[in-house]
Design a protein around this nucleic acid. Structure first.
Lengths: 253, 253
DNA sequence: CGTGACATTGACTAGTATCAACCAAAGTGG
DNA sequence: CCACTTTGGTTGATACTAGTCAATGTCACG
C-alpha cells in the first residue's frame, strides 16, 4: 500500500495536545485500526486512549499477565514472542506502525511484546474498547477483518515452520518482508536490485523462522554465493533475483 | 466444556424438514457460531443456509478457489491443510462438530479442507452472511471471539513447530487433544488412565506436527516404553502419566 | 485367506544444531 | 585519539535429531 506510506511520510509530527488531537494527527491514523473510523468516532475513542513511550529493549507485555490493555503502535517496531521455560523463544511476528497488539487474548496475554527500538504506543483499556464497540460497530468489523488476516498469515507461517527447508524459510521471509515494506508492485515480486532493510538481528530472524543464527547466516551466505542477493551490510540486502527467490520461497523444485 | 458434550449427546437426531428446523435442532446449535444467537435469529439465518453431506476423503474446499461459502460442521471431522507444489503438506488443524471453516479468507480460500469421514456441513453464502451481520451484531462479535481464539491456538502451534522437539510435539498434541475431547477437568490435566481416541492417521499427525510418520511412531513408542502411555490399538492411547506428559509438552527440562 | 492400507522398527543419511574460532563495527575510557 | 571491550555476524568442524529407505508387522475388508 504505497498510499499509506505516502500519508505516513506526510504526518510526521505527532501532536502534543490532548488525546483527541493525538488520535486525529496520529501517524498510524490511516493505517491501523483507526482507519475504519470517522473523525467524530476518533475523538470519542480518544477519550479512552493514552499515549505511552517505551524504551528500546523493554518488554512491555508479558505472557500470562492479565490483559488489561489493547495497543496500537504509532511509532517503532515490536517483536511479539512466546517462550518455553528453558529459554527457547519463538517470535510470532514483527509488528510495525499502525498494527496493534492484544488480539490473541483470553483474560491473559498469550504472548510477550518487546520494543525493538524506542516505540510509541496508543493504549486502550480493553473494557472501554468493548463499550466503544457498541457505539461504533465499524470498529468491530474492522477488527474481525484484521484478525482473519492475521490468521491467514499465521497459517502461512505454520506451513513454513512445519515443512520448509532453511533456504525456503529465509527466502520466504525476504519476500514477505519486501511486501510488507511496500517494495512489491501489487501482489507481485519486487523489482531486481530492490534494496531491502532488515532492522532485526539474526537472532530475531532465527527465532522467527525456527532456525539458529548460524543457519540463517549460512542460508544468506549461500544466496549471496548463488548471486540471488547482495549483502554488504548485515542489515540490508539487495534482491538481485527476486523471481528466483520467490520460487524458492514457494517451494518450487 | 462438558455441558456442550451433554447437549450434543441429547440432540442426536438431525431434523429432515426445512432449513430453519435444521438450524434449531442442529447438533452444533449450542457449540459453534450459532451459540450466540436467539431462536428468532437462527430462523432468519437459516434462510441463507444449506445442508450438505460430504463423502469421506473428499476435498471440499480447495486452496486458491474463490471463497464463496462459509461452513459450519454439523457432523464429522475435517482436516484443514496447506500444500507446497512438490506435495509437502501441512495440516493447520483438525476441525470437529460446531467449528466452522472459511475464516482465513481474502477473496480466495487460504487453505484446503478434506472430510476425514463422512461429514455434514451447514453452508452459508459469504455475501448473505455479511447482510446478516447488519441485523445481528452478536454474530459478528461471536466470530471475532472465535477468530482471536484461533489466533491464540495458531501462535501456540508456531511455538511448537519452531522450537519444540519431536517428543514435546507429540506430548503437546496428546494434551491439547485430550482437552478438546473434554477429558480435562477445567483447564487441568486429564486423570491418569484416561482413554483418548485418535481418529486421525499417523500421516495426519506427522503433517500436523511437522514430523514424519516414522518419527511420530517412534515418539509414541518411546512414551510407551517409558510408561507414560499405553498403546494397544494405533487409534487409542491411555494416558498413564498425564502430568508428566503435560510437563514434557510445556518444555520442562 | 489374501490383499492393501496403515503402523512399527531398524539401518543409514542428511540437514540443521552445537561448539568454537574468528571478524567487524560500535562504543568506552584512559 | 587510540587500545580495549562488547555485541553481533560469519565461517568451520563436529554432533545429533529427525528424515529417508527398507523390511516387517497388523488390521480391516472382500
Amino acid at each position: 500500500m504505497p498510499e499509506a506510506a505516502l500519508r505516513r511520510s506526510v504526518a510526521i509530527n505527532v501532536a502534543h495536545g490532548n488525546a483527541a488531537a493525538h488520535c486525529a494527527d496520529c501517524e498510524a491514523r490511516h493505517i491501523g485500526m483507526c482507519d475504519a473510523l470517522t473523525d467524530d468516532e476518533i475523538s470519542f475513542l480518544a477519550r479512552t486512549a493514552q499515549r505511552t513511550t517505551v524504551a528500546a529493549g523493554k518488554v512491555f507485555i508479558e505472557e500470562q499477565e492479565p490483559a488489561a490493555y489493547f495497543y496500537n503502535i504509532s511509532a517503532g517496531n515490536v517483536r511479539v514472542f512466546k517462550s518455553l521455560p528453558d529459554g527457547r523463544r519463538h517470535i510470532t511476528g514483527f509488528m510495525g506502525v499502525g498494527q496493534f497488539l492484544g488480539l490473541d487474548v483470553a483474560g491473559s496475554y498469550a504472548f510477550s511484546a518487546e520494543a525493538m527500538g524506542e516505540v510509541q504506543l496508543c493504549r486502550f483499556h480493553r473494557k472501554a474498547l468493548h463499550e466503544v464497540f457498541g457505539e461504533f460497530p465499524a470498529l468491530e468489523r474492522r477488527l474481525l477483518n484484521i484478525a482473519t488476516h492475521e490468521l491467514t498469515v499465521a497459517h502461512d507461517q505454520m506451513l513454513l515452520l512445519g515443512r520448509k527447508t532453511a533456504q525456503e524459510r529465509v527466502a520466504s521471509f525476504l519476500m514477505t518482508w519486501a511486501e510488507r515494506n511496500e517494495h512489491c508492485p501489487a501482489g507481485g515480486v519486487p523489482k531486481p536490485g530492490q534494496k531491502l532493510p532488515l532492522p532485526m538481528t539474526r537472532i530475531d530472524l532465527a527465532d522467527y523462522l525456527g532456525l539458529t543464527i548460524e543457519t540463517v547466516s549460512r542460508s544468506l551466505s549461500a544466496m549471496k554465493r548463488d548471486g540471488l542477493i547482495a549483502l554488504d551490510h548485515a542489515h540490508e540486502v539487495l534482491l538481485l533475483k527476486p523471481q528466483r527467490l520467490a520460487d524458492i520461497a514457494a517451494g518450487e523444485a
